Computed example of a mutant assay.
Amino acid sequence: MSTSGELIAEVRAMTVDDIPAVMVVELAAYPFPWTAAIFRDCLKSAYHGYVWEIGGVLAAYAMTSVAVGEMHLLNLAVAPHRQSQGVGRRLLRHVMASSRELGADMMFLEVRPSNIHAIALYLSEGLGEIGQRRGYYPAAGGREDALVMARSL
């Protein structure tokens, strides 16, 4: 805690040691979560993972791939108790700025049409829908399409 009583928030690179805490959020945030092995493979593949900690506790994370001038946001989640507090927005902005520094000038992502809060965040940050991927996500009744969104960085 800071001397004013506020919790200190910081964003930093994700490491393999963060995966257990990331999985707690992943399992709470998604009905069809990634596995710990997927996160490990992303880090081994030199993807860019970020964690946002508040008071030393993981509040959100993101995983991106940056190549050939493009950033693909692969996963972004906020712990349920930290949602609607601006954490996701701040992390998204950090990820976009970091990706620009890595040479990306375009950003792409997929999002479930049922994830109205994420869509609202992405639209408010300048992303627009550019297409759909049929049957992209697993869903309780089979498969769910994905909206493909993009923006210039």
Rank of each mutant, 00 (worst) to 15 (best):
L76A: 00
T15I: 09
M14P: 04
L92Q: 04
L147P: 01
L76T: 02
L73Y: 03
A62C: 13
E144P: 02
R40H: 12
G135I: 06
T64R: 03
N75F: 02
G141M: 10
L92F: 13
E129C: 10
G88N: 02
P31A: 13
R100H: 14
P20H: 13
A13F: 08
L43N: 15
A77I: 05
Y122P: 01
A79C: 06
E53R: 07
A79F: 02
L7C: 06
A104Q: 02
V78F: 03
Q83A: 04
D41A: 15
R100V: 10
I54P: 01
V11T: 14
T3S: 15
A104R: 04
V68E: 15
Q85F: 01
T64A: 12
I116G: 07
G141Y: 09
L127R: 03
W34G: 07
T15F: 08
R151T: 12
V66G: 01
L27T: 13
D105E: 15
E110A: 04
D41T: 11
L147C: 01
E6A: 13
S114C: 08
W34E: 07
V78T: 08
A13I: 09
N115E: 02
V148M: 08
L73H: 03
G56P: 09
A60V: 07
A77V: 03
R100Y: 05
P31C: 15
V68K: 15
S152F: 12
Y50T: 07
A79E: 03
R82G: 03
G88C: 10
M106K: 14
L121C: 05
D17V: 01
R12T: 04
M71Q: 11
D145I: 02
P20M: 12
L92Y: 11
